[in-house]
Nucleic acid binder design. Structure first.
Lengths: 188, 188
DNA sequence: CAAACTGTACCGGATGGAAGGTACAGTTTG
DNA sequence: CAAACTGTACCTTCCATCCGGTACAGTTTG
């Protein structure tokens, strides 16, 4: 068997989104970007919908892998605080506008967003209780700030000054580390 | 002169984006949503591009008005802290997925994003210095958290529990208020 | 005052091209 | 061999855009 170029196609599709938005994802544009032909794409993805769905799945999978790499294990094996810190760190360093666009555009269709809803639920869930503790609240606010940074870099004309960016990252990391350790294992 | 339905059209276009994304903004869909016809839309907006551009401008204008309403004056007339608090408050209460989608999709074209880049620059700018003070850093982090909340509510399958949401808003508001007042006027 | 005129706001259908999707016969490569 | 493609041709739907025409408010002019 020849080596499949499936992931190569998906990566090309992400570049198209990054450059020109989800709307620009057509069989023709992705074929040109990936160096394959329209027929070749259709071999892997029978429809545009299927291609977009695969992009969501691919994104979620890479995301989970990066998070697991950051903590050195699966989500269920580490504490809530470690997961939270890993989320902030990973989000701060490897979030792209393409991912944001894809997620927002697919947020209405369950088949699209199910994969990354899982990731978010495992690694950076919203407070479970309606009356969260100060610790839970701060953890959530820091998750939101990490997401805000992601958004910022996707919208700004120029990227944030790297030194400011590092100070923000440090601030969020320090905040997740301070205070006494609560005993809490992962399988909630 | 008859009363123009221009803003009515723009509002309808936002509803289309909210429901089905930027891609779904066609003359037909917006015509149906607004109760006018394709020809009527074309009278106001000579092209699809022009319609999208007008949406960006309209959004920025309403945004600025809400911010000015929150502080009771123009951006140049109040302190940096007031602007920052107003930004968090307004963002937390009246941010929609449609706005986010529109901004992200138009972030590459200067003609689209110029209006709201102005709003952001006036009301919630990133730290000017590469070595920001702790105060500046925290203000920026809280802006990011407000944006993160915006993103959260645009992506989640269910809206955040209102009580949690209020606690987050209170947390951000309290954080912007504490500490000694620095003397700083608006016209930087 | 009223007929004539002007310009804005809007209707509704026609058109042409771009893009999704189908079909299938040939080619490369592990 | 068989999976993984290439390449071409074609159909169909959708959608941006164009444009001739209608309704009507306001203004001019006799």
């Amino acid at each position: 068997m020849r080596q499949s170029k499936r992931t190569q196609i998906l990566d090309a599709a992400f570049r198209v989104v990054q450059r020109a938005g989800v709307r620009a994802v057509t069989f023709e544009s992705v074929a040109a970007e990936s160096g394959l032909t329209k027929g070749g794409l259709l071999y892997h993805f029978p429809s545009r919908e299927a291609l977009l769905e695969a992009m969501h799945g691919h994104m979620a999978q890479r995301w989970e892998e990066e998070l697991e790499g950051a903590v050195g294990g699966a989500a269920g094996e580490v504490s809530a605080r470690e997961r939270s810190a890993a989320y902030a760190a990973v989000t701060a360093r490897s979030s792209t506008r393409a991912e944001l666009l894809l997620m927002l555009e697919g947020a209405n269709e369950p088949a699209m967003c199910a994969p990354w809803h899982g990731v978010l639920e495992r690694w950076a869930p919203a407070p479970v209780s309606a009356e969260p503790s100060r610790r839970e609240l701060e953890a959530f606010v820091h998750r939101l700030a990490a997401d805000g940074l992601w958004l910022y870099e996707s919208l700004a004309e120029r990227p944030l000054d790297p030194r400011v960016r590092r100070r923000v990252a440090e601030y969020l990391a320090a905040a997740s580390a301070e205070g006494p350790e609560e005993d809490e294992d992962g399988d909630a």
